[in-house]
Design a protein around this nucleic acid. Structure first.
Lengths: 113, 113
DNA sequence: GCCACTTGTGAACGACTGCTCATATGTGCA
DNA sequence: TGCACATATGAGCAGTCGTTCACAAGTGGC
């Protein structure tokens, strides 16, 4: 039990990890990232493909960019975004793969918050 | 680009996935889950090991329980919790392993929200 | 230079989240 | 039975989050 406390990563590391998961916790951002799994896309195409407003997509991408999850390449008046973080790609792939043939969680069960 | 839209999981699946990540997005819950990686623990030990109030731990566990991330075993006046979801365990292991020898994200860089 | 288009930004608002305090429920011991 | 302990729960509050609206900035075509 004391050993458990010793095994816990330091506070900063846990916060970072939580922030990482937090970026993946929103359906809008998740959709954007899943779309980007296939390769780079520009903002307007992302908005169209994910059914979100361009402004909303821009806000989301700004956040993801700030955390270096996506990277941008500018060409003319377009901005092409791509996944920049292999770590997030693995997390996404793992989650999607598991979700494909087995509902990961109990999908809430009447006892949710 | 049309193919991308077709590849996107349906809305419900993305919501579920987001909810899953959302459970891991909070440092308090994350600490509890990491502590539980080693095996089951009772509420008061969890509170002690993670430096949180027992009430707060109980609330967090209730949420995790509702989503079947943890399972409970009662013994006397104690309640022993354990990880109930292999999926989450893999996510956690992967994230921790990567974090161990390479900061996953840019740890925010002055351009955060 | 002007206009349409694409993207980025800020403010504001509603909704949600996590925490804390108070209290209830249940268990073991004397 | 009475009390201390472990856990659970509800209400309330403060803080955060995501979305939307309005507009600014930069680019390419005419």
């Amino acid at each position: 039990m004391e050993a458990v406390r010793a095994d816990l990563p330091d506070a900063e590391a846990v916060e970072e990890l939580g922030a990482t998961f937090g970026l993946l916790a929103d359906a809008s951002r998740l959709r954007l990232l899943i779309a980007l799994l296939d390769g780079e896309m520009c903002v307007c195409d992302l908005a169209d493909a994910c059914g979100q407003s361009e402004s909303g997509v821009s806000h989301a991408l700004r956040l993801l960019r700030a955390h270096r999850v996506v990277a941008v390449r500018r060409s003319g008046r377009r901005a092409f975004y791509r996944l920049a973080d292999a770590h997030v790609r693995m997390l996404l792939d793992l989650a999607l793969a598991h979700h494909a043939h087995a509902t990961p969680l109990g999908t809430i069960d009447g006892d949710a918050r």
